[in-house]
């Protein structure tokens, strides 16, 4: 099998908030949505070697070789001020790494005794469905790793064939619903949501949808109509699917979206009550 590589923006070796048990979380670079409240906007794009970050770096800790498409980072002089991330016109980062399936397997082996499983996240991880397929097959064929659970944290914005590629190897999916109406979805994410709605129903039908999450953005996705439609959608899903309401947090969002209002606890409770009135109990995170 030809060895595929993927751009990995980060690995968290112990997470207690990305599924049941202690999990290793692998974050993939690049996303096909552009949410206003994205906390990690530097994982949205890919580097085009424009050198803007290297020029802006106050400690000259970055150098870029355009021809070889290589980035050099001096970790000793770097002060982690994140200027490079702020100036990047591509919503990218000079820090993500190209890794092979074997590279990731080695990382997992190191901590296998301490985890229930792995969660892959992004960016949008399903853009790497082929790579994921190889990674998951390697895990399932590995005597020491095959019992690990595999969860995918996705925005759902891909075609059915991508789900089919990984479905057999995966324990479950955690998907976001940003809004029901395509227009509101476009306001929040820059893109429409037809594929996402299809994905939600498809994964539910296959019994693999573990969690559906709504990020509450005041004045955007809290109209009566939105709440009614999201409630209807969630009610049609299996009762096994965990339905979650997440508070939009402004921490780490881009400056141009500073106008967004983070909901207060009272607002969260109020919107939760509206879902309850519509006949749906959501968990709050």
């Amino acid at each position: 099998m030809r060895e595929l590589r993927a751009n990995i923006s980060g690995i968290i070796k112990s997470s207690v908030i990305d599924g049941p048990g202690n999990r290793m979380v692998i974050f993939f670079q690049a996303c096909n949505l552009n949410c206003m409240y994205c906390h990690n906007s530097h994982t949205i794009g890919l580097c085009n070697y424009c050198e803007i970050c290297a020029t802006a770096c106050p400690t000259q800790s970055l150098a870029i070789d355009k021809e070889k498409k290589q980035i050099f980072h001096n970790d000793v002089t770097c002060t982690h001020c994140d200027t490079c991330l702020k100036v990047c016109p591509e919503n990218s980062s000079p820090f993500y790494k190209s890794m092979s399936v074997n590279d990731l397997i080695s990382e997992i082996l190191e901590i296998k005794d301490f985890i229930s499983g792995i969660t892959v996240s992004g960016g949008e991880v399903m853009l790497q469905a082929k790579f994921l397929e190889q990674l998951f097959i390697s895990i399932r064929n590995h005597t020491e790793l095959k019992a690990l659970s595999i969860l995918i944290d996705s925005n759902g914005n891909v075609d059915q064939n991508r789900w089919e590629t990984v479905l057999d190897w995966v324990d479950g999916f955690m998907i976001d619903i940003k809004a029901y109406s395509p227009d509101i979805h476009k306001q929040i994410t820059g893109f429409s949501n037809e594929k996402i709605l299809k994905s939600i129903h498809y994964l539910n039908l296959k019994g693999k949808l573990k969690e559906l999450r709504l990020v509450f953005v005041p004045t955007y996705n809290d109209s009566d109509e939105e709440i009614k439609k999201i409630t209807d959608l969630m009610k049609r899903l299996s009762p096994e699917v965990k339905k979650v309401l997440i508070k939009m947090r402004k921490h780490g969002i881009r400056e141009k979206y500073n106008f967004l209002n983070e909901p207060s606890l009272d607002e969260m409770k109020a919107v939760l009550n509206r879902f309850e009135t519509a006949g749906l109990n959501l968990l709050i995170i």
Binding site: S14, V16, G21, D113, S116
Partner: peptide, 20 residues
């Protein structure tokens, strides 16, 4: 404190520690 929501994570770590 966030681990309170996920006690199974502690089970994983305890079992791993004993394996080590």
């Amino acid at each position: 404190e966030t681990i309170k929501r996920n006690p199974l994570a502690v089970l994983d770590i305890i079992k791993g520690a004993f394996k080590k």
